[in-house]
Amino acid sequence: MLTKKTIQKIDKELKKFPDDQKQSAIIAALQIIQTENGFLTNDLIAMAADYLDMPKIAAMEVATFYNMFELKPAGKYKISICTNISCALRDADDIVCHLKKKLKIDFNEVTKDKKFSLKESECMGACGGAPLMTVNNQKMYEYLTPQKVDQILEELDS
């Protein structure tokens, strides 16, 4: 069930759109629900869809399209690393390899201590700082090198 608090927050978002265009608020609604719950389940997506009067499959499309949405439990720190063309040209693959080795996980997996999870992401529009990654969709780290990655992980771990 969606909690009262969640619904209040969604209602606040809904005010930004006309009454017959409720589905415009789906991204915001899913974000709110994800913050509350940690990740999105099929049921939660369906509830969001019902609340916004839209087909469930349409909400599903949105939830699966953006990799900021988690469809299964993520680690405490979710590292999303860009592998698109600009980052790839700046050796993002090396950073990915390094991260995978260091954390002993593959993409879309969580470390045993549930601290880190790794995600492959699309271009974040900051190619000037390639290669780059974000942590928990919020904090961005640019000009990555294996050494810098080690440093960031240590900081997060402590």
Binding site: P55, K56, I57, E122
Partner: peptide, 25 residues
């Protein structure tokens, strides 16, 4: 299905190389 059928019963789930046609669960 959305425009003629009147109900969006199928959708394109996922993105890019992983995109696939699917009904809701």
């Amino acid at each position: 299905l959305k425009e003629v059928g009147g109900m969006a019963e199928l959708g394109l789930v996922g993105r890019g190389e992983h995109a696939e046609i699917s009904a809701y669960v």
